[in-house]
Simulated scan of single mutants.
Amino acid sequence: MTDRIGFIGLGNMGGRMTRCIVDAGVEVHGFDMQRAAVESAGAIPLGSSAEVAAQSDVVFLSLPDSKVVEKVVLQDAAFLSSLASGSVVVDLSTAAPSSTQRIHERLAEQGIAYLDAGISGGAAAAEKGALTLMVGGDAAALERVQPVLAHFATKVFHMGASGAGHSTKLLNNFLNAIALSATAEVMVAAKKAGLDLATVLDVLNASSGVNFATLNRFPKIITGDYLKGGLTNALMMKDVVLYVDHLHELGVASPNSSGPLASFGLAQALGYADQISNTVVDAIGDVSGHVRLHDPDPAGDGAARPTDTKD
């Protein structure tokens, strides 16, 4: 018997993952506070998370943070009572591993498997069904849901026990934040130094400074394409804070967290909170003499500030 699939949280990432599942010919029951998001993803709209649980054998979650996940899974009695013993909940959110482990223990009491599945690749990979997943939890449960995961992920790694997937996700996201914020600073400096930015990137990508941002983000950003649709500055800041909290729980020093905390904090303070995190380069540019890597106007006055235009 084929598992019935449910999806809760069909926003920027959840909607794209759901669309991949639906396009593969699999029926999905969905719930989101924005009903239009469910319909846009091609899922069958239901009126609550509990209704999705009642209609599904495997429930996917793609929610903003641990607080929201706990509100849905632990604090909604209707949701808990609607989950049948033997079902699987797959949490695709970016969440605190300690919270994940508490949820795992609670659901295990009802005979429900809980997998924490961190995702990487962003909106572009989600659109293509080419995400990377890092999963914690029961190996048998992961094997059971693998056919569904294959519709939106090309690489799936089993990281270990409950919480291991979300832990790995935070570690990866922190390195992403470091690369983006540090490269943004370097590129603003290159612009002010009068260097040709495309050539600077060629040098970095052939040298020891190469990273994901130099390879995949800034070749677009210097032409004015900020690759909209990905993680916002506010969400990037949230992920870095989660990382710092996680390291505190582990008893590990985090001296390198100050850079991205300062950079994405600056972006939020200057009005870029809800814009894609790549605009952190504009926030750094703002306090460096209103520098823009790409000048869309002949006068070279720079790109519009957040107060001038909205996404």
Score class of each variant (00 low, 15 high):
residue 193 A to F: 06
residue 237 M to K: 11
residue 63 L to F: 03
residue 21 I to M: 12
residue 278 N to C: 07
residue 141 A to P: 05
residue 310 K to L: 14
residue 114 Y to V: 13
residue 164 A to S: 15
residue 5 I to C: 06
residue 75 Q to L: 07
residue 4 R to V: 09
residue 84 A to Y: 02
residue 262 A to E: 10
residue 79 F to Y: 14
residue 294 H to Y: 14
residue 183 T to H: 06
residue 25 G to S: 02
residue 58 V to Y: 00
residue 261 L to H: 05
residue 33 M to D: 03
residue 278 N to T: 11
residue 12 N to S: 12
residue 225 D to Y: 13
residue 116 D to S: 09
residue 134 M to K: 11
residue 210 V to D: 13
residue 188 V to P: 06
residue 110 Q to F: 10
residue 293 L to R: 09
residue 181 S to M: 07
residue 39 E to P: 01
residue 116 D to C: 10
residue 81 S to G: 06
residue 38 V to Q: 07
residue 303 A to R: 10
residue 80 L to H: 06
residue 173 N to I: 05
residue 60 F to S: 00
residue 118 G to S: 10
residue 230 G to H: 11
residue 4 R to P: 02
residue 308 D to I: 01
residue 207 S to M: 04
residue 149 L to I: 11
residue 249 E to F: 05
residue 310 K to G: 03
residue 85 S to R: 13
residue 102 R to H: 12
residue 76 D to Y: 07
residue 70 E to G: 02
residue 75 Q to Y: 04
residue 64 P to W: 05
residue 193 A to Y: 09
residue 30 G to F: 01
residue 309 T to V: 15
residue 161 A to G: 14
residue 22 V to W: 03
residue 281 V to I: 03
residue 96 A to N: 13
residue 280 V to R: 01
residue 122 G to S: 08
residue 145 V to Q: 05
residue 92 L to A: 14
residue 298 P to I: 05
residue 180 L to N: 11
residue 128 K to I: 07
residue 98 S to H: 05
residue 103 I to A: 10
residue 61 L to P: 01
residue 302 G to Y: 08
residue 35 R to Q: 15
residue 6 G to S: 12
residue 250 L to N: 02
residue 22 V to G: 00
residue 291 V to A: 09
residue 17 M to P: 08
residue 169 K to V: 04
residue 113 A to R: 09
residue 269 A to F: 12
residue 110 Q to H: 14
residue 190 A to Y: 02
residue 71 K to G: 14
residue 292 R to N: 13
residue 244 V to A: 11
residue 220 K to S: 12
residue 308 D to P: 01
residue 135 V to Y: 08
residue 283 A to D: 06
residue 291 V to G: 09
residue 205 N to V: 10
residue 208 S to R: 09
residue 257 S to M: 02
residue 130 A to D: 14
residue 2 T to N: 15
residue 17 M to E: 03
residue 18 T to L: 01
residue 156 V to Q: 07
residue 73 V to W: 04
residue 23 D to R: 13
residue 90 V to G: 04
residue 260 P to G: 03
residue 177 A to L: 03
residue 302 G to N: 11
residue 203 V to P: 00
residue 224 G to K: 02
residue 22 V to Q: 00
residue 304 A to Y: 09
residue 29 H to P: 00
residue 36 A to N: 07
residue 211 N to S: 13
residue 191 K to C: 01
residue 86 G to Y: 06
residue 247 L to K: 10
residue 75 Q to N: 15
residue 95 A to M: 07
residue 71 K to L: 07
residue 115 L to C: 05
residue 90 V to Q: 05
residue 175 L to V: 15
residue 261 L to P: 00
residue 106 R to I: 05
residue 186 V to M: 15
residue 138 D to P: 06
residue 189 A to T: 05
residue 294 H to C: 05
residue 296 P to D: 01
residue 31 F to V: 13
residue 239 D to K: 12
residue 205 N to H: 13
residue 309 T to W: 10
residue 127 E to P: 04
residue 69 V to A: 14
residue 183 T to E: 02
residue 82 S to C: 00
residue 163 G to E: 03
residue 248 H to P: 00
residue 282 D to W: 02
residue 169 K to L: 08
residue 276 I to H: 06
residue 160 G to D: 13
residue 247 L to A: 15
residue 25 G to I: 14
residue 112 I to T: 08
residue 3 D to S: 10
residue 298 P to G: 06
residue 123 A to T: 11
